[in-house]
Design a protein around this nucleic acid. Sequence first.
DNA 1: GGTTGCACTGAATCTTTGA
DNA 2: TTCAAAGATTCAGTGCAAC
Lengths: 366, 366
Amino acid sequence: MTKTRSQKAAPLPLDSIIAGDCVEAMNALPENSIDLIFADPPYNLQLRGDLHRPDNSRVDAVDDHWDQFASFQAYDQFTREWLAAARRVLKPDGAIWVIGSYHNIFRVGASLQDMGYWILNDVVWRKSNPMPNFRGKRFTNAHETMIWASKSEGAKYTFNYEALKALNEGVQMRSDWVIPICNGGERLKDANGDKAHPTQKPEALLHRVLVGATNPGDVVLDPFFGTGTTGAVAKMLGRHFIGIEREEAYRKVAAERLRHVRKYDREALQVSTSKRAEPRVPFGQLVERGMLRPGEELFSMNGRHKAKVRADGTLIGEDVKGSIHQVGAHLEGAPSCNGWTYWCFRRDGKTVPIDLLRQQIRSEMI
Amino acid sequence: MTKTRSQKAAPLPLDSIIAGDCVEAMNALPENSIDLIFADPPYNLQLRGDLHRPDNSRVDAVDDHWDQFASFQAYDQFTREWLAAARRVLKPDGAIWVIGSYHNIFRVGASLQDMGYWILNDVVWRKSNPMPNFRGKRFTNAHETMIWASKSEGAKYTFNYEALKALNEGVQMRSDWVIPICNGGERLKDANGDKAHPTQKPEALLHRVLVGATNPGDVVLDPFFGTGTTGAVAKMLGRHFIGIEREEAYRKVAAERLRHVRKYDREALQVSTSKRAEPRVPFGQLVERGMLRPGEELFSMNGRHKAKVRADGTLIGEDVKGSIHQVGAHLEGAPSCNGWTYWCFRRDGKTVPIDLLRQQIRSEMI
DNA sequence: GGTTGCACTGAATCTTTGA
DNA sequence: TTCAAAGATTCAGTGCAAC
């Protein structure tokens, strides 16, 4: 278990991008030297044919060679190799974040546990504007999962509780974060105007990770650097970064990006909390939650009409079925209708507007 | 591959609770007989001595380092055993849902993939009122993860897309669901007024799972039945349930609960259906019935193209002839085209989609 | 200059039927 | 089994061009 002195003496290549395979590159770094690792490894998406939107445009899929693995076994071996190299360079009280989707995250999580990492939380990135499911065959894939783990059980990891609480308007930060996907001006483009990297992560995501899990001056390593979001946010926040990237095209884009990043930049102060309008409450939630029973009757405010609630949150009235709004509009012969203020239900002989139930749900959501 | 007649003949113990170990109980059920499995397995990785193998033997703790490894291994074995038994009883087009937290869900997910299940989505239950993290050392653990998987790749699982969309106010259902934890009147209490089960799931969660992934009359199996939330919601929704539970105390509470549950009436159980479920209508029928005349012109929805109806129900357009779909696709330079929504005809100066005529025929078919 | 409308896009394991 | 054809299917947002 003795380590050679030469390994310890090798200086860290701070604030630079290392070219090459991440396992080899990490093995060339001194052990126990990194405070935080943020890793966005290939997801092993296993996409088959083309996918088109309903308007017949083709989806620009992630079909890059670096995301191709022959089997789960091959992917597991790849995962264990880079996790082992990462573990060696991590300080005993360091921590790791890994992001993934259902294609790979379960394998990553199990490997982390098997190798002695200690999971602290899984954190869900809820995308406010995900790509829809175009064929209507599954749920909209609206989130990705991050695993936050310390090097071992009992390690004294960094967690800036108060800073995160402040970021979250004074209440404890939860394990689900609502953040938009990376597009608009933040999305890096190549010379042709195409996206420079297929899976660029939003800076807001890294901002929260680094504020919460590092201190100024800490060293943050990203073994799958891509276009360098981790480095950019680290630099803004006064942390050191080390990026490792195999593809020259990505390294070039990242280097150029980092040249323009300034510490304590205005952007770094951007608070990622989305402006909070009154949250939308689907009528179906009243049914799911048992506030209204399927089969129960609703009555129009004017007393002229009634309709029955169905299990999927639609109504069935005289001759018509559909949403609370559609049925209301049809019964009144009106072009539109606000079902929330139109319909009432009966409790203990009293007639109560359903909007009261919506208000109740909203008050729970704050 | 021949199956014994006795297995096929064994009747399903519908709408009942089976006492005993779930692996043994599932092995006693006929194979390929279950439409949906909902499983809420024990998470108790941290509570070391409390882990049982399927044969009821206890997993012994060894020394600290080995113990951790042994626990994960034992948990994996437990997981693979019940997942194998579940797989046997599941119909080829059946599906499974498993719920868990970061303590166990990564191991469950990896096992599912290794055993040939095909993950369709991971779904995040985002708790609107989670327990705070009292010590301020981690993020508020505000979610749990469910994995939805079919028995194998390419299987024709049930997904009631339109009903879920209706439940969600007309936009497609996402992979993150905001639902409160189970408390208040729904939370079952024992004779002492303590909660009857430590992890009772909310009925709203099961409502959404069962509306989305089963049809009325389907058989839903819950191998870790607990206090029977799955059975209660299945009964309300007109699905059959089979529960398996080892602890007598939970079985008693569940049985009492189920006695009081009433099925919703038939009308309330009807949900919005997809067009896919409706009968096919050949375009030629519109011509045969005289709804469209041979020689009549159709116009594309966007007004850019037109084509003539021929007596055999094909179209002839600029340069191209074929089905309504083929001609539409060709004129738009698109890989495919739904001719029903693409083409319109003229009546009394108004432009009307031909899909209206199809709906008319369908309504006469009922 | 402000508004409206159209085109485009994002880590995607994305169909079903019948010959 | 494979293949071809029918036909079902999208949300939030950006950016640019046309009014």
